[in-house]
């Protein structure tokens, strides 16, 4: 029954937590820039506002894909907090993103099209590292199930420092933070307008935003797994990681897609090196 509670709690609480995190993020970003910044609840106002707007579309199909995106993001997050198989979760997660990309393709608009292509490059950049991270957890805990990974008493981070660093790199991509916010961004994004979300408006855009909240909570949960042996340290570590991401977001300029792809893949190499050493140690019968 525990798994059901986890999933339901995620489905209900994640948007709230995700929205709050986004609010804190904006507040901290503003402070880093010497501004006051918006109210803490600003992300909720934004989404609420979007639901109040008129429904305007380029093609009706776009709503379908975005809805599918939201549902599958929520599903993969729910699976995660239900303690499911990490690989399955990763694949469901990819499926969700493919839907978002298809929504952007469906509208037949130049900006949205470039956004979609760049989003796919991002997927290509981060996917190997996520799979590798799942494998890393398996090597440490002997299971792909989140329940069991979370229950290990082994400090995963000590065995997987390279994997963690690699994951931190692709986390920047996933959180749509500079320098890898190439497909769309929360900041003004003039060269391709709003990229993948250019043609989404009103409630459709709100769904994208909510999906993003779900996604962020899920990703932070993923980070937590590295520190799961001690919940207190875990929460602190997640917070520090997120702060570091905000910091990076504020001190770097947007890179080109080549850099994003290379960084993602190099990060994966780091992870592979880590796992290679780890499996060598295990074979050696440490």
């Amino acid at each position: 029954m525990n798994w059901l509670i986890g999933a339901v709690l995620f489905l209900i609480l994640a948007p709230i937590a995700g929205g709050l995190i986004a609010g804190i993020d904006r507040k901290i970003t503003a402070r880093m820039q010497g501004r006051v910044g918006p109210p803490l609840l600003q992300p909720f106002y934004d989404v609420g506002k979007l639901f109040e707007k008129e429904r305007a579309v380029v093609t009706t199909a776009q709503n379908f894909y975005v809805l599918a995106y939201l549902i599958f993001i929520a599903l993969s997050g729910a699976l995660f907090f239900a303690g499911g198989d990490l690989l399955l979760i990763v694949f469901a997660f990819t499926l969700a993103h493919v839907f978002l990309v298809l929504g952007a393709y469906a509208v037949h608009s130049p900006y949205s099209h470039i956004g979609a292509e760049r989003e796919l490059i991002q997927v290509m950049a981060y996917e190997p590292m996520i799979i590798l991270a799942a494998v890393g957890f398996y090597m440490v805990s002997g299971s792909f199930y989140v329940t069991e990974i979370a229950a290990t008493t082994v400090p995963a981070i000590l065995y997987l420092p390279g994997v963690f660093l690699g994951f931190a790199v692709i986390l920047t991509i996933k959180l749509r933070k500079s320098p890898f916010d190439i497909s769309t961004s929360h900041h003004a994004h003039q060269e391709i307008v709003k990229g993948i979300t250019t043609e989404f408006s009103g409630s459709t855009l709100a769904q994208v935003e909510i999906a993003h909240w779900y996604e962020n909570v899920f990703l932070l949960g993923f980070v937590f797994l590295f520190f799961a042996w001690n919940p207190v340290i875990g929460v602190v570590a997640v917070a520090i990681t997120y702060l570091a991401e905000i910091f990076v977001d504020n001190v770097t300029a947007r890179a080109r897609w080549q850099a994003a792809l290379k960084s993602g893949w190099l990060a994966t190499l780091l992870g592979i090196a880590n796992l290679a050493i780890l499996s060598y140690m295990m074979l050696g019968g440490a």
Partner: peptide
């Protein structure tokens, strides 16, 4: 800019008519 900081009022410069009010 930080001096006037309109984001205080939730104002964002979107650069995209489909998102703008």
């Amino acid at each position: 800019t930080p001096l006037y900081d309109v984001e205080r009022f939730g104002i964002i410069n979107t650069g995209n008519p489909k998102h703008a009010d």
